[in-house]
Design a protein around this nucleic acid. Structure first.
Lengths: 119, 119
DNA sequence: ACGGCATACTTTGCAAGGCAAAGTATGCAA
DNA sequence: TTGCATACTTTGCCTTGCAAAGTATGCCGT
């Protein structure tokens, strides 16, 4: 199930930052990883992902490095900056909070996470 | 913790539909209820909520009814339409999906919801 | 050699919607 | 009558998703 536009706005950036938090990746790779690892939920096209990357880079949250990969092709590898890690942590807290909010409104299922899980 | 703009886009409409799913409410009441019931996470101002309501009504998901309340003031009460209930169910599924996606990316904490909880 | 396909990145233009700010109207209490 | 809480409305800016179209290149089959 692919999510709609407005939900992608909140989910896209943090999803990208989260993947980059585990190591550098290039754009095309991110498009596929997001789709595959979320069962198609975050299936954003190239025209959504690339501008998103340019935006994150302009904000100084990620940085890039163009180089030729093992397969002979040029790729632009992205990785988190220090600000990016800070932002990722903040975004995670936001998502934790909004998830709790959605649960308390009955939008999503599941019991409330105990307070000790949220430290 | 108040969530940021882009996250509100995905959370606002479904939160309102969800509250209205339990009975009619008026705008001012919704502003306070959203803030209070989510610990300030969905603290949207009037200038966010009212246009949101007009939008949902224009789409036929809610309908309104202006009348004088017990306190002597005029209020505009909103309730879900049939289309609104359908949409609420769809939005819940979207949120369930995006929550799973965020969990699988490690953005939010908690164990995966067992399949039998998602029926 | 060359056509087709997958890989990889870029740009344009439109549509949607959050929200600060400012405004309108009214009931009630000091 | 002044002030505050209640209740709703509107304007304008800004950000961003994304369809569509385009560019460039390596590899494989014939």
């Amino acid at each position: 199930m692919r999510i709609e536009r407005e939900l992608m706005r909140g989910a896209g950036p943090v999803a990208v930052l989260s993947l980059l938090g585990k190591g550098e990746m290039y754009g095309y790779e991110l498009v596929e990883a997001l789709d595959r690892r979320t069962d198609g939920v975050l299936d954003m096209g190239q025209s959504t992902l690339y501008p998103l990357l340019y935006n994150l880079e302009a904000k100084g949250l990620i940085e890039s490095d163009r180089r030729v990969a093992e397969n002979g092709r040029e790729r632009k590898y992205y990785r988190l900056t220090s600000d990016g890690r800070t932002r990722l942590a903040a975004d995670r807290a936001q998502w934790q909070a909004v998830t709790e909010a959605m649960r308390s409104l009955g939008v999503i299922a599941g019991r409330l996470a105990p307070a000790w899980r949220l430290a």
